[in-house]
Amino acid sequence: MDSVSYKAGFLARMHSPQQMQLLFNHLPDVYFFAKNREGRFVMGNDHFVRQCGATTESDIIGKTDFDFFPLGRAESYVQDDNYVMETGESIIDRVELAPDPGNSINWFITCKVPVYSIGGEIIGLAGTARDITRAGLALRPYTEMRAVLEFVRDNYSRPIEIKELAALVHLSISQFERRFRKVFQISPLKHIMNVRIRAASLRLTASNDTIATIALDCGFYDHSHFTRNFRKIMGVSPKEYRKQYVS
């Protein structure tokens, strides 16, 4: 019997795939979920359930990202889901910014893979996410930049110079920029901008502060500077984003 037959025979005898799912409940800082073709959750480990602000897995079954996350983030997740399910190509080790269960902004490494039926049809996807700042040595290429990520996260409201970030990891500016881009596939300046935009998007949906106040608090020079960059990244103006989410 070949290896494929051994594996198929074992899986066919399993009482329930949830036996494997239980393993994810005991892996620290690993968020596991699965969705059907319509983008509705069909599985989620305990960590992911808490990420959604829910209590038990049954609270998320049959619901979508739009039931738990701000509009901009939900749309981004769905866009990735559709890509995986329409092309059959996986998304592996994508580094992206998102709030953790404590609503702090952190970097996560995400993976999404298509799930196939016995007949070979894509019936959904499964995914995992890991918090870079908590995952430790398993994510060493990323944790080498942990001091930089935390510094930007804690200081995005003020001007940040690249030389400050380079000094944190004891590199020259040119070495730092090359290393950062190699690890995260974006420049340090774009990372800073992404952090500010994500922080601003949370404020827009979670507070009644004016857009001008949010702009200044999140490190932008003025209202127009904020609006221009927000639209470039999120696809809509801050005012439109807030209106869409509230409505």
Rank of each mutant, 00 (worst) to 15 (best):
I118Q: 15
Y156E: 02
A138K: 11
Q79V: 04
R140M: 12
V169F: 02
I162D: 06
I132L: 10
G62A: 03
H170L: 10
D59Q: 09
G119Q: 11
S104T: 15
F69G: 02
D46G: 12
N103E: 12
P159T: 06
G53H: 13
I91A: 03
D65N: 10
N106D: 15
F69K: 04
Y77P: 00
I61Y: 08
Q185D: 04
N106I: 11
K112D: 00
E121D: 15
V78K: 03
S187V: 02
I173L: 04
T64Q: 05
D46M: 14
L149A: 03
P114K: 07
S58D: 11
V113H: 05
V115P: 01
T64E: 05
S174R: 15
F184T: 02
P70V: 05
T56M: 11
E144H: 11
I118L: 15
F184R: 00
K163Q: 07
N82M: 07
Q175F: 08
D59V: 04
P70D: 05
L171E: 05
C111N: 10
E86D: 01
A98N: 04
D67Q: 06
K112N: 02
T64V: 06
Y77K: 00
L125G: 03
S117M: 14
T133K: 10
N155L: 09
A135T: 03
P188D: 03
M85R: 01
R130C: 09
A54M: 09
V148P: 02
V49H: 05
E150G: 03
C52L: 12
L168Q: 01
R158C: 05
N103L: 11
V169Q: 00
D100S: 15
S58R: 14
E164M: 09
I61S: 07
Q79F: 07
A54P: 10
H170P: 04
F69V: 05
D46C: 14
F176D: 01
V115T: 08
I109P: 00
G72H: 06
D100A: 13
I92T: 05
A126K: 09
H170E: 15
E177T: 06
R158F: 06
F184G: 02
T110D: 00
E86K: 00
Y156F: 14
K163N: 09
F108N: 01
L149C: 04
C52S: 10
